[in-house]
Amino acid sequence: MKISVDVDKCCGAGQCVLAAPDVFDQRDEDGIVILLDANPPADQYDNVRKAAAVCPAAAIEVQE
């Protein structure tokens, strides 16, 4: 799995952090996504898929 995020699209909702806290975080000042792990281990796949699905800005792309 390879993850990429579009920080220009990101609206800082933090839904990805709620879904996959080991893979995503947010910047303090504006809430923009921080990708902690672009190639997460398999036990994170479900969380990451959920994060991409609920991202309200469609800013997370997942390639499997």
């Binding site: 933090g14 952090v17 709620l18 947010q26 504006d30 809430g31």
Partner: peptide, 11 residues
């Protein structure tokens, strides 16, 4: 208001 990361913690 303009504290997104802090606000999320109160969720």
């Amino acid at each position: 208001v303009t504290m997104p990361r802090a606000t999320r913690r109160y969720r």
